[in-house]
Design a protein around this nucleic acid. Sequence first.
DNA 1: ATGCAAATTGAAAACGCTTTCATGAGAATA
DNA 2: TATTCTCATGAAAGCGTTTTCAATTTGCAT
Lengths: 333, 333
Amino acid sequence: MDKQTVTIYDVAREAAVSMATVSRVVNGNPNVKPATRKKVLEVIDRLDYRPNAVARGLASKKTTTVGVIIPDVTNIYFSSLARGIDDIAMMYKYNIILANSDENGRKEVQVLNTLMAKQVDGIIFMGNEITDDLRKEFERSKAPVVLAGSVDETGETPSVNIDYVAAVQEAVKNLIDHGSKKVAFVSGPMDQAINSDYRLKGYKQALAAAGIDYDERFVFETDYSYQAGQALEPALTAAGADAAFVGDDELASGVLNGLTDAGIDVPGQFEIVTSNDTKLTELVRPKLSSITQPLYDIGAVAMRLLTKLMENEDVEDNNVVLPYGLMKRQSTK
Amino acid sequence: MDKQTVTIYDVAREAAVSMATVSRVVNGNPNVKPATRKKVLEVIDRLDYRPNAVARGLASKKTTTVGVIIPDVTNIYFSSLARGIDDIAMMYKYNIILANSDENGRKEVQVLNTLMAKQVDGIIFMGNEITDDLRKEFERSKAPVVLAGSVDETGETPSVNIDYVAAVQEAVKNLIDHGSKKVAFVSGPMDQAINSDYRLKGYKQALAAAGIDYDERFVFETDYSYQAGQALEPALTAAGADAAFVGDDELASGVLNGLTDAGIDVPGQFEIVTSNDTKLTELVRPKLSSITQPLYDIGAVAMRLLTKLMENEDVEDNNVVLPYGLMKRQSTK
DNA sequence: ATGCAAATTGAAAACGCTTTCATGAGAATA
DNA sequence: TATTCTCATGAAAGCGTTTTCAATTTGCAT
């Protein structure tokens, strides 16, 4: 039953050379006489020899695979990043071990450990909160780590992001400029730094710039789901909000549909701006205005940065900030 | 710079036992005196020893890693399956190497080969068309392969699916029962068996059952994108169609919005049924009626099946067919 | 021809673990 | 007490590569 496996040794014997020579031709080492190379290549072809990457990994201490920790592949925001990551990884001959974490700290640490046990050459981490436990693991890791679309207050870990504070500020300013006086801040869990430290800060700055007092009652903390957004309508109405900045597209879709279903006109009576510019913004009606982020690129650049780190190339900047934008669609005036 | 790596040998020395014994306690082999086990465990803890999975893989010929080939993680249908796959994989202590194929045959074959080189213990393949090249690779693979949400006409490869023919037939019948006489069949590429052999067959059966002649002019072949769907409105209108079965949710969203934006009332003037019951169906307005599929479960069951295959357990049925349903939302009467 | 540097090649030692097989120590049986 | 088993343990042989180092060729300038 076991399909017979051809090893480098078999090739060496058949080609009447040493394993070392076979290894050289397989790895494109130039120090091989052309005639020898040809002979070896023929045998390889004839025997259909395929190098065993595990053995190779053990001997060379390089696995050409990187670990990717993602909150949930099912979330378009993250899967967009993942796609960028995988494409660049493939371009540089790496493979990706993908693991869902559900943003659960224990799971994240555990996954990180199994990735390290598997000797990945590098790790890309996505997740909204870097706990101290996590940071500790990052440090002990001999494989470089880079954050994609995820903030680390300390700035110690290499990362690729946009300027969340500025982006949110601009988005909220836009709302205020349209005449909104009561802009809600609809957010995912506030124990995540990206919400409590970055986005909220941008929100507050925009208010301050417009001379509006910050009022906690306009801050709505919830989870990132569509349902949560939809269920928010009564609260939003009760608070008298006339616009909202929302921290996630799926959540924003929920908010939008919740309002619309309740007979509230968007953007006539209520404006909405969302954060991630995923496909979802185009699907709903009215289409959602949004902060734009180069999602695919965030992943791609993160992976590229990781390759540099893995191959000990010089990197100018460990914390890359990509440009954001503001896309006006139909949910704002 | 190199963080010092502690090996099983170090542990053995410190604990004054042999490597074999350390290996035994690490792997939970019961043939170890409790006192010895305790001693070894202490040393492991003290030295912070972590087994090297690569070395383990080489020695044991098991990597506890499975390859997953996916057309595009960014597509909610597939990412839902992927999520099911990963969860079950984790449950059984496997990790996932995820690779995007874009349904490109060459890329699929290439990825398959690198996965096999990496000695994955099994492979889950998602993709709408199993070419002969691919089938050949599956056969030569010593790692078992299972298809998730993907059909293979030959039925040779283990798989997990729903009954696409019956599901589509029922969906189309439903449309006809509502009075539609001109039901369009909006499909992805017809060179994919799932479209040309399965879904189209269900469509034809439903027509036949209703005594309606099959008319090629109602078959619209396109790619799976939102844009493609949106652009279909003029053609649909020109053909005089009054309903459509659509083979993909994103595509269906496009069709829906294209029609709506052109002032056509759905479902009043035009009914739509889509295929995958992803989140998208709930996002758009009107919400899309759809064939329901247990997406997560298809992935989960596929992975479970794979674990059985990898561990040589008996499997009753190599081709699992999960139940489908029909969910009436707002895009049908 | 002669000598020397450069180009090829091979031998063998890792890489860090699993696993088989043999052995010793008790425990159980007669 | 002698004999047989069972349980714990260790020694050492792989697993399939890469890589170092030394040895052998080869190519050229003398």
